[in-house]
Amino acid sequence: MSSFVPLTPTLTLENVVPAPLAESVPAGSQVWDTRLALTPGRHYHVSAVSGKGKSTLVSILYGLRQDYRGSVRFDGRDIRAFTPGDWATHRQRCFSIVFQDLRLFLHHSGWENILVKTDLYGPPDRPAIRRLADRLDVGSLLDKPCGRLSYGERQRMALLRALVPPFGWLLLDEPFSHLDRDNAERAAGLIAEACASRNAGLVVTSLGEDSRFGASQPIRL
């Protein structure tokens, strides 16, 4: 894993308006229908109330949605021209993600959910994964099927899956929505460490202001 060189493109949005917001672009948005450049290695915190397009932004950056006008460029390359192969490459070498709806294999254990991702990069460092899991207080739950865990525990498993592999950009869509204060603090610490050790960029969304991302550049939707 150490020899793996992640991709760290500049992510640029130019006059992007997603289809659901086409009729009602929020006035004064720093993301929609304007120009926004996300610089590699920097941290961005997108906070807004529901329905402003937080998940839409993450989905567009991750290549899951194409229903927008305007253009999104990675290092100047329009992502509309990406092939499925290009997206596979970016999902392996550029992005790591926690989806808002987590998207875990519920019939499979935490271990299996994490390893199916790390398998893309070579043999896993199991003790390191175990240490990370212990810090999030889910080390003892790694062998349980994810379907039998609480939502908060699942959220931490999804976070582990995102933090273990290499990445150039970390995308987190409301990662603390079901975490208590202590766990959220610990998770924020881990996220900061993981990004720092990789010199990676971060885009994190939350429902409201979140003091745990004080060091990030706030972006208004």
């Binding site: 991750y62 499925p84 596979a88 999902r91 998207r103 294999f105 199916v116 991702k117 893309l120």
Partner: peptide, 13 residues
């Protein structure tokens, strides 16, 4: 579902 998620995690088709 599994195939979709695997593709989203970065597996090639």
């Amino acid at each position: 579902e599994e195939i979709t998620l695997l593709l989203q995690l970065g597996y090639r088709a």
